[in-house]
Design a protein around this nucleic acid. Structure first.
Lengths: 164, 164
DNA sequence: ATAAAATAGTTTCAATCATAACGTTTTTCA
DNA sequence: TGAAAAACGTTATGATTGAAACTATTTTAT
């Protein structure tokens, strides 16, 4: 059914064909994002039951850094509520340790625990695998182009603020 | 603080630098998606209080097509629960009319109402504006490349099933 | 013809999330 | 100093979501 026989006028048919979701750029970005997100999310979800926020919190923290929650917000593009919840979950899991900053008792000092580091080290090659799989069949130049153009779009959107 | 002085070994420092969220491809895709999504979402949200699901439902329906809910699922990459909810909201708003298929009484026959068409026609140029803004400063060839490479990644993810 | 299976769409339930309000501590500045 | 403002992080509230269960109808297979 490419043309609708019930269509009241030829002009309306033309107008109808004027907007196609499947070639609408924001729609293409959404289904692209979902494909990428589900692929990589399966790794940390299946292996350790981590959410994306928890994984990203661990990732910005890295194995040895000691950061405050606010610093994690800045580096992860996660808002402070979800960082707070990710920290709570990671603490329950024993993956993260919280101390209080001696100089500023509002600030926390967050580090991965030994067990958190172990999980993080185990995850790195697995997410790298997925990343490589997603980018397979593309030349290094194409990969650079893709990343550059995504950054350009993001810049156009005026949303580079949360890049950190 | 680029190097952590508390770090127990030089090897660990190297390992720490080995994974950077800000150059991790799935992370870049996520912040790209969020920028695009917020830009275009503001249009149909601010002008008509529509959610992304509602907008996409209207968009696949187009001004004159008559589709069943299942057909909307296929064409919009929205799951059936959220299509059902989008339809309910759009009916409340008076943007969409539901009839029952005469041959198969399980199926609905969904069309935009006159008022829904008016809103849809009003939205098209506005979302096109945002789309153009997002892609500005890119040559037609670059745009094609971006879209082609996104499709390639999606293909690699094995997620082309929901492209319709 | 009829029981079982499949399909269309809705509803329920629990989990996730965003916004706003909040408590605590530190900083600013009069 | 000491009161107001700002910063850090958490909690409360309501909305959104996704998986599974559900109703109703149609198709399949005996």
């Amino acid at each position: 059914m490419t043309k609708n026989k019930d269509c009241p006028s030829a002009a309306a048919v033309d107008f109808q064909d004027m907007f196609e979701l499947k070639s609408f750029f924001p729609y293409l970005v959404r289904i692209y994002y979902r494909a990428v997100s589900e692929s990589v999310g399966a790794v940390y979800s299946n292996l350790y039951g981590l959410s994306a926020y928890e994984w990203r919190t661990m990732a910005v923290l890295g194995p040895y850094a000691a950061l405050s929650a606010t610093e994690i917000v800045e580096k992860s593009s996660i808002d402070k509520v979800n960082v707070s919840r990710a920290i709570a979950k990671l603490r329950e899991r024993g993956f993260l340790k919280r101390d209080i900053d001696g100089d500023d008792r509002r600030r926390s000092v967050l580090r991965l625990t030994e067990s958190g580091r172990t999980a993080f080290y185990a995850l790195i090659p697995r997410v790298r695998e997925v990343e490589a799989h997603l980018l397979q069949g593309m030349t290094p130049k194409e990969r650079e182009t893709l990343i550059r153009l995504m950054e350009k779009v993001r810049n156009n959107a005026g949303m580079l603020k949360d890049a950190s």
